[in-house]
Amino acid sequence: MTAIQHAPAIRRISTGRRVKDKIVQGLVYLSFAIAVVPLLSVLWLVLSNGFARLNMEFLTHSMRNIGARDAGGGAYHAIIGTLEQVLLSSVISIPVGLLTAIYLVEYGRGGRLSRAISFFVDVMTGIPSVVSGLFILAFWILALGMPFSGFAGALALSILMMPTVVRSAEEMLLLVPNDLREASYALGVPKWRTIVKVVLPTAFTGIVTGIMLAIARVAGETAPLLLTVFFTDSINTDPFDGPQMGLPLYVFDQSRRPTDVAIDRAWAGALTLILIVMLLNLVARLIGWWRSPARR
């Protein structure tokens, strides 16, 4: 290294660098503003337009005998439908997803079968919702000759829900330190009891949070319902027989009708849907917070 004469005073950084730094900072703030504006606009419109129409009548009446131009009517049938479909799909996909995750983490570590399962779960995560609807349509309704029903919708939803449950549960199980398992084995506890008594309780809150988020996500899905549940304006409480309605479907259906009263119903339906989804999200966060180590 060549010797440098007298060391210079503390140099300022060059104007170019300073300007670049400021420009980037400006761009970052700008992009945040760009992102926030439409999102706030969506929320604001849903809230303001939705509350105008959201009342007890809306929540307790169906659309039976109410034409597109008539005021009144509600989403009772759609709310019932959504709740039943989401419940059914949870009943299907939570046990399967959970067991798959347990297998992947506790039993199949790195084996060929577990790698294959892992790969399929990854691929399933990327399946567009409309394709899962088409699959149930092709398999359940066209090939097996079953009717359009809430159950068919629930099947389509579970295709979407299962990979999410597997992934989140897997992540949570992986976070359980191996020391805990070994401590349990060292006490002579068999593997299955270790999983049930030590591993699952440790990962419990994380898994529940993941499941709630998965439920919230499928509750808002429209496309698969469109192809499997079909439409109805009447109340149908039996998810195994005949077309049902779902809230997202209701919003879609109403927003395609070119009258103001229908649009109002769509907003109210959207608000109800957002409230349900946000509620599920909130419950998930609360569970996460309630059992988080930081709080103890």
Binding site: V42, L43, A216, G220, E221, L273, I274, V277, M278
Partner: peptide
């Protein structure tokens, strides 16, 4: 988590 139908 906002459902897509609402964006639509």
């Amino acid at each position: 988590a906002v459902p897509s139908v609402i964006y639509g």
